[in-house]
Protein backbone atom coordinates (compact mmCIF):
# COMPACT_ATOMS: atom_id res chain seq x y z
CA UNK A 1 0.00 0.00 0.00
CA UNK A 2 2.78 2.37 0.92
CA UNK A 3 4.75 1.63 -2.23
CA UNK A 4 1.65 2.04 -4.37
CA UNK A 5 1.05 5.49 -2.90
CA UNK A 6 4.68 6.38 -3.50
CA UNK A 7 4.49 5.22 -7.13
CA UNK A 8 1.39 7.34 -7.77
CA UNK A 9 3.17 10.36 -6.30
CA UNK A 10 6.18 9.73 -8.56
CA UNK A 11 3.92 9.54 -11.60
CA UNK A 12 2.16 12.78 -10.66
CA UNK A 13 5.42 14.68 -10.17
CA UNK A 14 6.96 13.46 -13.42
CA UNK A 15 3.75 14.33 -15.27
CA UNK A 16 3.73 17.87 -13.83
CA UNK A 17 7.40 18.33 -14.80
CA UNK A 18 6.56 17.20 -18.34
CA UNK A 19 3.66 19.66 -18.59
CA UNK A 20 5.91 22.48 -17.39
CA UNK A 21 8.58 21.62 -19.95
CA UNK A 22 6.26 21.35 -22.96
CA UNK A 23 3.84 24.10 -21.80
CA UNK A 24 1.08 23.14 -24.22
CA UNK A 25 -2.11 21.16 -23.77
CA UNK A 26 -1.87 19.45 -27.14
CA UNK A 27 -3.51 16.02 -26.79
CA UNK A 28 -0.61 14.03 -28.25
CA UNK A 29 1.89 15.72 -25.95
CA UNK A 30 -0.24 15.11 -22.84
CA UNK A 31 -0.72 11.42 -23.71
CA UNK A 32 3.00 11.03 -24.32
CA UNK A 33 3.66 12.61 -20.92
CA UNK A 34 1.25 10.22 -19.21
CA UNK A 35 2.90 7.19 -20.84
CA UNK A 36 6.32 8.53 -19.86
CA UNK A 37 5.24 9.08 -16.24
CA UNK A 38 3.92 5.52 -15.88
CA UNK A 39 7.03 4.09 -17.54
CA UNK A 40 9.52 6.05 -15.43
CA UNK A 41 7.69 5.43 -12.17
CA UNK A 42 7.57 1.68 -12.80
CA UNK A 43 10.94 1.04 -14.43
CA UNK A 44 13.27 3.59 -12.85
CA UNK A 45 12.21 3.05 -9.26
CA UNK A 46 13.68 5.23 -6.50
CA UNK A 47 14.67 7.98 -8.90
CA UNK A 48 13.01 10.71 -6.86
CA UNK A 49 14.33 11.65 -3.39
CA UNK A 50 12.64 10.26 -0.25
CA UNK A 51 9.89 12.19 1.57
CA UNK A 52 8.27 13.43 -1.63
CA UNK A 53 4.89 13.44 0.11
CA UNK A 54 5.95 16.57 1.99
CA UNK A 55 5.25 18.52 -1.20
CA UNK A 56 1.54 18.41 -0.32
CA UNK A 57 1.74 20.26 2.98
CA UNK A 58 0.67 23.94 2.75
CA UNK A 59 2.43 24.85 6.02
CA UNK A 60 5.75 23.77 4.58
CA UNK A 61 5.07 25.78 1.43
CA UNK A 62 4.35 28.87 3.54
CA UNK A 63 7.64 28.53 5.41
CA UNK A 64 9.47 27.84 2.16
CA UNK A 65 8.12 31.14 0.84
CA UNK A 66 9.31 32.89 4.02
CA UNK A 67 12.74 31.30 3.53
CA UNK A 68 12.92 32.43 -0.10
CA UNK A 69 12.04 36.01 0.87
CA UNK A 70 14.69 36.21 3.60
CA UNK A 71 17.22 34.47 1.35
CA UNK A 72 16.58 36.97 -1.46
CA UNK A 73 17.26 39.87 0.92
CA UNK A 74 20.53 38.36 2.12
CA UNK A 75 21.65 37.39 -1.40
CA UNK A 76 21.23 40.94 -2.70
CA UNK A 77 23.08 42.26 0.37
CA UNK A 78 25.84 39.71 -0.25
CA UNK A 79 26.31 40.90 -3.81
CA UNK A 80 26.69 44.53 -2.79
CA UNK A 81 29.12 43.38 -0.09
CA UNK A 82 31.23 41.54 -2.66
CA UNK A 83 31.02 44.51 -5.02
CA UNK A 84 32.35 46.82 -2.26
CA UNK A 85 35.20 44.46 -1.43
CA UNK A 86 36.22 43.78 -5.02
CA UNK A 87 36.10 47.35 -6.31
CA UNK A 88 37.76 48.91 -3.23
CA UNK A 89 41.40 49.67 -4.11
CA UNK A 90 42.80 48.19 -0.87
CA UNK A 91 40.84 44.88 -0.91
CA UNK A 92 39.43 45.03 2.68
CA UNK A 93 39.39 41.29 3.42
CA UNK A 94 40.37 39.29 6.51
CA UNK A 95 39.65 35.66 5.56
CA UNK A 96 39.65 32.54 7.67
CA UNK A 97 37.91 29.18 8.09
CA UNK A 98 35.61 29.00 11.12
CA UNK A 99 33.47 26.24 12.61
CA UNK A 100 29.68 26.40 13.03
CA UNK A 101 27.38 24.01 14.86
CA UNK A 102 23.96 23.44 13.35
CA UNK A 103 20.91 22.13 15.17
CA UNK A 104 19.12 20.87 12.06
CA UNK A 105 18.57 17.12 11.81
CA UNK A 106 17.60 15.96 8.33
CA UNK A 107 19.96 15.77 5.35
CA UNK A 108 17.81 17.99 3.13
CA UNK A 109 17.74 20.76 5.72
CA UNK A 110 21.52 20.57 6.14
CA UNK A 111 22.10 20.69 2.39
CA UNK A 112 19.86 23.70 1.89
CA UNK A 113 21.40 25.42 4.93
CA UNK A 114 24.84 24.95 3.38
CA UNK A 115 23.69 26.35 0.04
CA UNK A 116 22.04 29.31 1.76
CA UNK A 117 25.24 30.00 3.68
CA UNK A 118 27.22 29.92 0.45
CA UNK A 119 24.95 32.57 -1.06
CA UNK A 120 24.95 34.97 1.93
CA UNK A 121 27.46 37.76 2.68
CA UNK A 122 31.05 36.67 2.82
CA UNK A 123 30.63 32.98 3.67
CA UNK A 124 31.34 29.75 1.76
CA UNK A 125 30.67 26.25 3.09
CA UNK A 126 33.74 24.05 2.72
CA UNK A 127 32.79 20.81 4.46
CA UNK A 128 30.13 19.27 6.65
CA UNK A 129 31.02 16.64 9.25
CA UNK A 130 28.02 15.44 11.29
CA UNK A 131 26.69 18.64 12.92
CA UNK A 132 29.71 20.82 12.25
CA UNK A 133 29.89 23.07 9.22
CA UNK A 134 33.29 24.47 8.21
CA UNK A 135 32.79 27.90 6.68
CA UNK A 136 35.26 30.12 4.87
CA UNK A 137 34.54 33.67 6.02
CA UNK A 138 35.93 36.55 4.00
CA UNK A 139 35.86 39.06 6.86
CA UNK A 140 36.22 37.49 10.31
CA UNK A 141 35.12 40.20 12.71
CA UNK A 142 33.93 38.25 15.76
CA UNK A 143 36.39 37.05 18.37
CA UNK A 144 37.81 33.80 17.11
CA UNK A 145 37.01 31.50 20.03
CA UNK A 146 33.41 32.65 20.45
CA UNK A 147 31.67 29.82 18.57
CA UNK A 148 28.21 30.87 19.84
CA UNK A 149 28.42 34.34 18.28
CA UNK A 150 29.85 32.98 15.03
CA UNK A 151 27.04 30.43 14.80
CA UNK A 152 24.39 33.05 15.49
CA UNK A 153 25.94 35.32 12.88
CA UNK A 154 26.26 32.75 10.07
CA UNK A 155 23.71 29.97 10.46
CA UNK A 156 21.10 31.30 12.90
CA UNK A 157 19.24 33.44 10.40
CA UNK A 158 18.13 30.46 8.28
CA UNK A 159 17.66 27.68 10.82
CA UNK A 160 14.30 29.02 12.01
CA UNK A 161 12.65 28.72 8.61
CA UNK A 162 14.51 25.67 7.33
CA UNK A 163 13.57 23.65 10.44
CA UNK A 164 9.90 24.22 9.72
CA UNK A 165 10.29 23.39 6.01
CA UNK A 166 12.24 20.13 6.18
CA UNK A 167 12.23 18.65 9.70
Amino acid sequence: METLKRRLLDMLIIFVLWLLLTWSLDLQGVVAGAILAVLFALVLSRLLPPHVERLFSPVRWFWALMHIISLAFWVVLANFDVMYRVLHPNLPIRPGIVKVKTTLKSDEAKAFLANSITLTPGTLTIDIIDDWLYVHWINVHESLEDTEAITRDIAGRFEVTLRRVFD
Partner: peptide
Protein backbone atom coordinates in the same frame (compact mmCIF):
# COMPACT_ATOMS: atom_id res chain seq x y z
CA UNK B 1 30.89 13.00 -1.83
CA UNK B 2 29.38 15.07 1.02
CA UNK B 3 25.73 15.11 2.13
CA UNK B 4 25.15 18.41 0.34
CA UNK B 5 26.16 17.09 -3.05
CA UNK B 6 24.21 13.85 -2.53
CA UNK B 7 20.97 15.64 -1.60
CA UNK B 8 21.08 18.19 -4.41
CA UNK B 9 21.92 15.45 -6.91
CA UNK B 10 18.88 13.46 -5.76
CA UNK B 11 16.71 16.55 -6.20
CA UNK B 12 17.82 17.30 -9.77
CA UNK B 13 18.29 13.77 -11.19
CA UNK B 14 14.59 13.14 -11.88
CA UNK B 15 14.24 16.54 -13.57
CA UNK B 16 17.23 15.79 -15.79
CA UNK B 17 15.78 12.46 -16.93
CA UNK B 18 12.44 14.09 -17.80
CA UNK B 19 14.28 16.87 -19.63
CA UNK B 20 16.23 14.30 -21.64
CA UNK B 21 13.01 12.50 -22.58
CA UNK B 22 11.55 15.85 -23.70
CA UNK B 23 14.60 16.50 -25.90
CA UNK B 24 14.23 13.02 -27.45
CA UNK B 25 10.49 13.15 -28.10
CA UNK B 26 10.48 16.70 -29.50
Amino acid sequence: MTIIVKTITDFVAAFIVVFGAYIVLY
